[in-house]
Design a protein around this nucleic acid. Structure first.
Length: 110
DNA sequence: TCTATGACTCCGG
DNA sequence: CCCGGAGCCATAG
């Protein structure tokens, strides 16, 4: 792993860490904030490796419609949902309810 | 160097 | 937002 690699991952992790408690965002928003609007998939890719980092609230990052696309990457079958619900976010059938209400856009809020 | 892959998104129907 | 298809792009092998 070179510096450049760590830099990209670091940027994703940095934004993810700044997601407020009880708020959620999507991959595209993070990618856009990083200046790589078309690299939303890479954000997810980076999050996939987030388990290597200590405090990455990856459960607060979902896809554009609030679907918990990454829940399968968490321990167990519904850990991601439990984490979100513990923050006051309702999740039904892997989908965040009132997504627009809990939505947090780094490029606007940060 | 080239190919495959993916925790995505946009677009048209 | 349901569905199928195309685009994007960094990383891994």
């Amino acid at each position: 792993m070179k510096k450049e690699t760590l830099n990209f991952f670091e940027k994703v992790y940095d934004v993810a860490r700044q997601i407020p408690y009880g708020r959620v965002t999507n991959y595209g928003a993070i990618a856009k904030y990083l200046g790589a609007a078309r690299s939303s998939r890479m954000v997810g890719y980076a999050m996939n490796a987030s388990h290597l980092k200590p405090d990455i609230p990856a459960h607060r990052v979902v896809n554009r419609i609030g679907l918990l696309t990454g829940k399968h990457h968490f321990e167990g079958t519904n850990l991601m949902q439990q984490l979100l619900e513990s923050e006051g976010i309702k999740v039904i059938d892997n989908k965040i309810q009132d997504f627009d209400t809990h939505y947090w856009d780094p490029s606007k809020e940060l």
